[in-house]
Amino acid sequence: MSIQITSACLIRNNHIQLNGETMIEKEKHLPFNEFIKGAYELNASPNLKFFKMDNLCKLAFITSEFLLKNKKISEQYGAENVSLLFANTSSSLDTDINYYNTVKDFASPSLFVYTLPNIMLGEISIRNKFKGENAFFVFEQFQADFLCNYATQLIKEKKAKVVIIGWVELLKENYESFLCLTEENGNGAELTNENLNELYNGK
């Protein structure tokens, strides 16, 4: 069995790359909120919920919009066969802090619903009608081997035909997002630790 990385999107330093090609590049000092709003307005299909999402979800959502643009994954493989496997290091701490600050006055219900990192998986699944297994993990740093092994196992055990794997990290103005589409017998680099690390490092 051979599993390939058929597409990869990397966002960091206000620079969006899809399969190594620059999609958007803005000044490095531009605040995250302005950068991500600009990326949404230029590229994402209208979604009323976008502006209600927290920053972590916005980042994951925009990365997935680039990764999956013009692709009909759900229709092609079946909604139940698309899995999401994400990780980061700060969990939902960015929103947890914002929510904690509102608790002293009036607790914000709209912030509270984002005080879990796996909400981003839900937002992407709703948007793309994915119904497969999804999981979220917290690691100190990007772990290609874990994501690679887990995705391979899901496909080998026929729990999924496609796995979107990645790293979506955000705390204040520090962020990076890296999502890969992995498919069995697809066109692209083989899903290996080395290839995943190389794409993550933006080489």
Partner: peptide, 17 residues
Amino acid sequence: LGLDSIDALELIVLLEK
């Protein structure tokens, strides 16, 4: 306006605040 259940909770907060 297409508001949802979380918006309803935010409206409750708005009235109280």
